[in-house]
């Protein structure tokens, strides 16, 4: 559900350049495979570009298979990869549980695996590349509390509409946000979890919270899709200027919403960079070098204050992307 904003045009251009370079090799080139949960989603597509770019630069043949959120297809790709005796597998699994099976099968075939985002519930892998969700959520929390004090809502209640807390990234985001809130002396926090991810569900959760807590002045949506459900509920409750909204991950219209003050702030991961890091880790492993097992990449925070500076980057990151939800 995220539109990936690349931090550097540099890396993007490098990627472009490297894929076009033909590296002559006396031996057949080592083959890597990237199995992605759904390449139709921009976040993964951008990550795929980062991977392709980096693999080409390092002289690997790279194939990208999109499971399209289908566990069976994902498994079929893994089996195929094993049958093809690829040198390494980079995976953004459909979920962390399915990843365990992938790791198991790969292990039995002796193929190294690098996980790029989502994570795994277990098993052996070379490296896990992820965003520093906790840190991002912490900064979002800081921006919120600062704003609440500015507005004189120091005693305010804060609501969280959370993604499922069974997900590792969900837990990290909550922990980081709560830490910031606590450091600023706020105590009244209410958490409600999404499960169906429909607009109606989000609307209902928000409305319930507003009714339950009259002193509610802030809502943090841990994802970014269905933000309209939140805005709708706030408007219907007649609290339009009384409740601040924050999100995590971005939508293309967010810069405009931030500028208008409808959205206070949001966080953006860096999929291109993550893809590059995944290939780099695999390469190091295949060359027998030490690899940092859990690599966390920083998250970019955009708010009214820094939107002008980040805009260039954001805009460069968005060309060709749809205004659809991007799920990660």
């Amino acid at each position: 559900m995220i539109l990936i904003l690349f931090s550097t045009t540099f890396s993007y251009s490098e990627h472009k350049v490297n894929t076009s370079i033909e590296v002559p090799s006396p031996e057949p080139r080592k083959q890597l495979i990237y199995i992605v949960s759904d390449n139709r989603i921009p976040f993964w597509a951008i990550m795929g570009r980062g991977i392709t770019n980096s693999a080409s630069m390092l002289g690997y043949e790279i194939n990208i298979y999109s499971s399209e959120n289908n566990a069976k297809r994902e498994l079929e790709f893994i089996v195929k990869a094993i049958q093809d005796k690829v040198s390494g597998i980079i995976v953004s699994p459909t979920n962390s549980s399915a990843c365990v099976t992938i790791l198991k099968l790969a292990k039995s075939a002796g193929i190294p695996v690098v996980i790029s985002d989502v994570g795994t519930d277990g098993g052996e892998y070379v490296a896990y590349i992820s965003s520093n969700n906790r840190e991002g959520a912490y900064q979002i929390g800081k921006i919120l509390t600062k704003k609440l004090f500015e507005l004189g809502w120091g005693e305010s209640k804060i609501g969280i509409i959370a993604i499922p807390q069974t997900r590792l990234n969900g837990q990290a985001r909550t922990a980081g946000f709560i830490q910031a809130i606590n450091e600023s002396g706020f105590k009244g926090v209410d958490i409600k979890q999404q499960s169906t991810f429909t607009k109606q569900e989000t609307y209902n959760l928000t409305k319930g919270m507003i009714i339950e807590h009259p002193d509610l002045h802030a809502i943090w949506l841990q994802g970014s899709n269905r933000y309209k459900g939140v805005l709708q509920a706030i408007a219907d409750s007649g609290k339009k200027d009384k409740i601040l909204l924050l999100t995590f991950d971005a939508q293309p219209e967010f810069p405009e919403l931030i500028r208008q003050g409808i959205l206070l702030a949001s966080a953006m991961q860096q999929p291109y960079l993550m893809g590059q890091e995944a290939v780099s880790a695999m390469d190091r492993h295949l060359n027998g070098k030490a690899v940092e097992k859990n690599r966390q990449l920083p998250i970019i925070i955009i708010s009214r204050e820094n939107i002008a500076q980040q805009l260039k980057t954001i805009k460069r990151t968005f060309p060709g992307t749809q205004e659809t939800d991007i799920e990660n």
């Binding site: 566990a71 994902e74 549980s97 399915a98 099976t101 277990g122």
Partner: peptide
Amino acid sequence: ASYAINEYDK
């Protein structure tokens, strides 16, 4: 049926 091998493993 849903190929959730790790889930039934769990």
